[in-house]
């Protein structure tokens, strides 16, 4: 073999050997011991790194659970079962956590929301539409229909209905809140799954304009607020629910002329039907 080849091999090999030996010694001196429980817990976490727990990722959550005693039920994705497993590993009792899901608080679909006379041609993403033109609908508070929420969802829990509104599939939704963050209009909120009463509108337009631009808008009449004993407050022509004081039996749902305030269970059926239609067509 050519001498240069041998020299080259030995030079690189020798350099590699020297540096790796030095690193071995450095590693022995500088190793940081990690609690073995952290690795154990990190293993059973979903590892989607969605950040719904409020920490920087699944591994960070595991570290916080072990070291600063964060609640083991902090991971909404894993739910009860995971909280139980984590508390088994840590040897502590776990508290029950209520499943949370995303709710889309706008019902201005393609049928009920009026559109501008000009057409929007351009990127469909909501984030772009919101900055450039405010979308196709006359309402500046409602759903843009671009599907940013669907794009960020890691759990296939959102799909676009035929009428152009995002629909949440409760079984898949983990309440991680990525969709809520992605929505430039802030119409997606995370609520406990057993919460039933919602105002399905975010419009702060005055009554006249609300009525003009959308059939399902909250027009700010204030009837629900007057009957609710403080459970609902009117702010900027919009009914805001205070869930701590709310008594659903006092709310006159049938008096709401646009059906903006409603029980979500009233149109659960619609979601189910759409879901089956969707799965059949796919």
């Amino acid at each position: 073999m050519d001498a240069t080849v041998m020299i080259a091999i030995f030079t690189m090999g020798g350099l590699g050997l020297i540096f790796s030996t030095l690193l071995v010694f450095a590693d022995k001196k500088l190793r940081v011991e990690e609690n073995p429980l952290i690795a154990k817990i990190a293993e059973i976490l979903p590892n989607a790194n969605c950040g719904a727990c409020g920490f920087a990722g699944c591994h960070d959550f595991a570290t916080k659970v072990v070291e600063v005693k964060a609640e083991p039920n902090g991971c909404p994705v894993g739910g009860k079962d995971l909280a139980f497993e984590i508390s088994q590993i840590l040897g502590i009792e776990s508290k029950e956590s209520v499943k949370k899901v995303a709710r889309v608080l706008c019902r201005g679909d393609n049928k009920s929301a009026k559109k501008k006379s000009t057409m929007y041609i351009g990127p469909r993403e909501c984030s772009v539409q919101a900055i450039i033109s405010g979308g196709e609908k006359l309402c500046y508070y409602g759903c843009l229909g671009g599907g940013d929420c669907i794009a960020v969802c890691k759990f296939n829990a959102i799909f676009m209905s035929e009428d152009g509104l995002p629909m949440i599939i409760e079984e898949n939704c983990t309440g991680c809140g990525l969709c809520a963050k992605a929505c430039p209009r802030g119409i997606i909120e995370i609520h406990p799954i057993d919460r039933d009463v919602f105002v399905f509108c975010k419009s702060k337009d005055d009554p006249k304009r609300s009525k003009e631009v959308c059939l399902n808008a909250c027009i700010g009449c204030g009837i629900c607020a007057r009957k609710s004993d403080g459970g609902i407050e009117m702010m900027d022509h919009l009914a805001i629910i205070n869930y701590d004081k709310l008594d659903p039996s006092k709310i006159p749902f049938d008096k709401c002329s646009t059906k903006a305030i409603q029980l979500i269970s009233n149109f659960d059926e619609k979601v189910l039907i759409e879901e089956t239609v969707n799965s059949l067509t796919n």
């Binding site: 240069t4 020299i7 080259a8 030079t11 590699g16 540096f19 790796s20």
Partner: peptide, 21 residues
């Protein structure tokens, strides 16, 4: 030793080890 063709790999080796350290 006339090994100037090893400049880049040997320098990269140095840098990588140092960064690891």
């Amino acid at each position: 030793y006339n090994l100037t063709f090893l400049t880049i790999p040997s320098f990269i080796l140095v840098i990588a080890s140092l960064v690891q350290f």
